[in-house]
Write a protein that binds this DNA or RNA. Structure first.
Lengths: 163, 163
DNA sequence: GACTTGCGTTCCGTCATGGAACGGATGGAC
DNA sequence: GTCCATCCGTTCCATGACGGAACGCAAGTC
C-alpha cells in the first residue's frame, strides 16, 4: 500500500494549517470529499463524475480511508461490493468547502454569477458561508488575528523557527 | 513561463469548489498564503521558513501573482528588489485557512492540543473559526445544505452531468 | 578584491500522474 | 451453457512535476 508521499510532508509540523494541508491540500482529495458531500458513494461514480484515473482513485480512496475521512461500507456480499462514505471527520470538512465556494463565488465566478447555489434547508434560504469568530461571532479578517504558539507546539519540525 | 498544468485542470468546471481547488487545492499554494498571512514577504524568507525548493518557489509565486492572490511590490530599486504581498483576494483566503485550522485542531492535533492559538484582537479573545450561514447565522452542516445549479452553471465542462 | 545578501535559473534524478488495457467475480439475457 | 454487462479494481507505461544542488548576477560592504 504505497502512501505516495515523497513531496515534502508537512503532517507533523507544529501548525494545524500545515497538517490540514497535508490532507486537504490536494486537488483530488478536496474534490473527492466534495463529491462525497454531494452524495456520490461508489467507485465508478467517483471515477465518471470526476474524470479521475482509476488507479489514482484507488490510491486516493484508500488514503482517505486511512486518514479517517471516509469509510468503506459493504452494501452487498455477492459479489462483495463496498461503497465509500464520509465519516464524521469527513463530514466536517464541508464547512471548509463551503468557505472555499464562497471565496470562489466572490473572486472566480464569471459575469453570470455562481454556478452553484447553496440552499440551507434549516432556514430555507439560499446562502453562502461566512467564517466567524467563535467568541464574538464577527466575520474574520486576517489583520485582526494574531497567531501564537499553543500547548501542542514543538519547535523541532517546521523548518522555520517562527510560526 | 511554463504554467505547470498537466494534471487535470478543473478551473473551468461549473463548480466553484472545483475552481477554488484549482487554485487552493495545492500543498504549496496553501502554505504560501498561510506564510504570507503570518507576515512573510520576501523570497528568501518563504524559502527558509517553508523549506520549499527555490525553483518551485519561483514558479508558485509567479503563479499566485498571475492568479491575483499576491502582488509584487518593489521595495528598493538599487538593486531592484521586490517582495510578495497578499492582494485583497489573497487576504480573503484567510478565513478558509482559519476553518482548516479549526478542523485540524479538532481532528488532527495530538494530546497536547493545538500547536497554534489564534487570538482575535477585535474582541480580545482566543478563538477558533466557525463557518455559519449568511442568512441565519447558524453553523453549517452538510446534511442541511442542498446544492443547486446557479445562473453561471454550464453543463459543458465537468465530466459529470450531475452537480 | 573578496565576501555577503537577495533573487532567481539551470540541470538532473526520482517519483506521482493519468491513460489504456487487463482481470475477475457475479448476474442477467437468450 | 454461453455471451454480455456491471462493478471494482490492478498493471503497464510515457510524461512531467518535484525537489536538491549548483550556478548566475547585481549591488552593497569591509
Amino acid at each position: 500500500m504505497p502512501v505516495d508521499v515523497k513531496r515534502v510532508d508537512t503532517s507533523d509540523w507544529p501548525c494545524t494549517i500545515a497538517r490540514s494541508a497535508a490532507v486537504l491540500g490536494d486537488h483530488w482529495n478536496l474534490l473527492l470529499v466534495r463529491q462525497a458531500c454531494l452524495g456520490t458513494r461508489r467507485f465508478d461514480d467517483f471515477q465518471r463524475e470526476l474524470g479521475i484515473g482509476r488507479n489514482i482513485l484507488t490510491r486516493r480512496l484508500n488514503q482517505l480511508v486511512d486518514e479517517g475521512i471516509m469509510q468503506r461500507v459493504e452494501y452487498q456480499s455477492h459479489p462483495p461490493r463496498s461503497e465509500y462514505r464520509l465519516t464524521q471527520q469527513g463530514r466536517e470538512v464541508y464547512p471548509i468547502l463551503a468557505a472555499m465556494a464562497a471565496w470562489g463565488d466572490r473572486w472566480l465566478s464569471g459575469p453570470d454569477g455562481t454556478p452553484l447555489v447553496l440552499h440551507h434547508t434549516a432556514c430555507d434560504h439560499d446562502m453562502h458561508a461566512v467564517v466567524v469568530c467563535s467568541v464574538c461571532d464577527e466575520p474574520i479578517d486576517v489583520q485582526e488575528i494574531k497567531a501564537q504558539p499553543g500547548p501542542g507546539y514543538r519547535a523541532d519540525h517546521e523548518p522555520s523557527a517562527t510560526v
